[in-house]
């Protein structure tokens, strides 16, 4: 059971990190970040299980969920603005926003 959860955590972190490194679409970046954060959230809860302190782990996981959602919301809003200004969702286009 422990190893299954560890594999899940490391797998989510690995997949999210890999996609974060190679993707160029702004929306896909947000997806990769979401996957990465899910791995981190599971890791926090797992740590709470290990030290038998689930209350604090759950409280921190709640904060992570809120922060993750806000990051996704702002990331999507930025992606919309970048697409409407530069006509592309390519992450390289952000550097062309500078006047």
């Amino acid at each position: 059971m422990s190893y299954i959860i560890v594999v899940c955590i490391l797998g989510l972190l690995g997949i999210g990190f890999y996609c974060l490194l190679i993707t160029r679409n702004l929306l896909k970046l947000v997806v990769a970040l979401q996957v990465l954060v899910k791995g981190a959230m599971l890791a926090v809860l797992f740590a709470g299980c290990l030290v038998d302190n689930m209350e604090v782990a759950q409280s921190m996981a709640l904060t992570i969920i809120v922060a993750d959602t806000i990051v996704a919301v702002i990331g999507l809003a930025m992606a919309i603005q970048v697409r409407q200004i530069t006509n592309t969702s390519n992450i390289r286009s952000i550097s062309t926003l500078r006047k």
Binding site: M1, S2, I5, V6, F46, C49, L50, D52, M54, E55, V56, Q58, S59, L62
Partner: peptide, 18 residues
């Protein structure tokens, strides 16, 4: 890692007090 499947006591106390 030794996994202890112990459910949390009351989450509300931790969130609203601690």
């Amino acid at each position: 890692p030794v996994f202890k499947n112990t459910p949390a006591d009351i989450l509300a106390n931790t969130i609203w007090e601690d």
